[in-house]
Simulated assay, not measured.
Amino acid sequence: MAAAEMTSIFVDTRLPVKRCTPAAARFIQLIPTDIGRPLSDTGTGFPGVELAGYAMNALNRHPQPINRAMAE
């Protein structure tokens, strides 16, 4: 995944950050000490982007697609 520059953050059902791709770490500004912290404690720097809410949506039985355009 790292070679493809995919931006992925891995969490479990309680939403702590388990791991992430290097692209996600750069884009969302995660640091090594964020591993194990709640996703809701991380910030993106993008107004209106709620990663924890998006993750909960993805974990629901009937998730809805989320499309957001963002620029660096």
Rank of each mutant, 00 (worst) to 15 (best):
N57W: 04
D34K: 02
A71G: 14
Q29T: 06
N60I: 09
T21H: 01
A25F: 11
K18F: 03
A52V: 06
A55L: 04
A55S: 07
A69N: 09
M70G: 15
N60D: 09
E5S: 13
Y54P: 00
P32R: 08
I35D: 03
A4C: 05
P65V: 09
T13L: 12
E72K: 06
M6H: 06
R37E: 12
K18R: 08
A52L: 05
I28C: 13
T21M: 02
Q64E: 12
N57T: 03
T44M: 04
M1I: 14
M1R: 12
M1N: 10
R61T: 05
A2S: 06
A2R: 13
E50D: 13
I9G: 05
E72T: 09
R68C: 04
V17Q: 07
P16K: 06
Q29I: 03
V11N: 01
I31S: 09
R19S: 15
T44I: 08
G45H: 05
F27V: 15
I9N: 05
L59N: 03
L15P: 00
M70D: 07
T42K: 10
V11Y: 03
A69Q: 14
K18D: 07
F46R: 12
I31W: 10
A23P: 01
S40L: 10
S8Y: 14
A55N: 07
P22D: 04
S40N: 10
M70I: 13
M56G: 02
